[in-house]
């Protein structure tokens, strides 16, 4: 044990650090913190490649693990944390006086807080006035819920995908309001 060189000591230290980072990744609950951990994992592992006399592999690992892998993880994690609503009603149901004060907004906010999601409301006129039935608009813009209004009866329709697990809860919460109706439509099957 006495005649360990400096390189060997570094290699052992880095390997033990690697084990600790791997355990931290497995046990951590917050996915956003894990992105930082996976980037540092990639850095430590490429240092170990250099110690193993493989600079070619280390360059490949640094090039891939520095930007592209964290980017795709960041995008997929941020997409799983938000709930996008397309507001096609165009009145004070959600937005009144440029502020989110409508009772529809309060319902949706209560619903997303229950699932710890970020509510993201889109009322860009270019998308909202897209032609065609709601189902086609939902497929093309990838939103989770569409709010629309029947002009004659004044009923607001919340339309979502039938396969989504969240819609049952929304139906329960909307039962208290008389002029809100939750509808589901059948989504195209996975991969068609």
């Amino acid at each position: 044990m006495a005649d360990l060189t400096l390189l060997e000591i570094t290699a052992y230290a880095l390997q033990i650090l690697l084990i600790f980072i791997a355990i931290a990744i497995v046990l951590h609950k917050n996915n956003r913190t894990i992105i930082i951990l996976i980037a540092s994992f990639s850095l430590v592992v490429s240092a170990l490649y250099v110690i193993n006399n493989a600079p070619d592999v280390a360059i490949a690992e640094v090039a891939i693990g520095a930007a592209i892998i964290p980017l795709i993880y960041v995008i997929s994690i941020s997409r799983q944390r938000e709930f996008i609503v397309l507001d096609r009603a165009m009145d004070d149901f959600i937005i009144s006086d440029e502020e989110f004060t409508g009772y529809g907004y309060r319902l949706l906010k209560q619903f997303t807080d229950h699932y710890h999601l970020d509510l993201n409301i889109c009322n860009d006129p270019m998308i909202c006035q897209m032609e065609g039935p709601d189902q086609n608009v939902c497929e093309r813009t990838n939103v989770d819920l569409i709010v629309s209004k029947d002009e004659k009866t004044g009923t607001y329709y919340l339309k979502g995908k039938e396969s989504s697990l969240l819609m049952h809860k929304l139906e329960e919460m909307a039962a208290d309001y008389s002029d809100i109706e939750v509808q589901t439509f059948k989504d195209v099957e996975f991969g068609e």
């Binding site: 795709i72 997929s76 997409r79 799983q80 995908k161 396969s163 989504s164 697990l165 819609m167 996975f190």
Partner: peptide, 18 residues
């Protein structure tokens, strides 16, 4: 990995849960 993550995003759109 990119293909697997794209499938994850589609699963979230479909089921509303991951």
């Amino acid at each position: 990995t990119a293909l697997a993550l794209m499938l994850c995003i589609k699963l979230f759109h479909h089921y509303g849960s991951i």
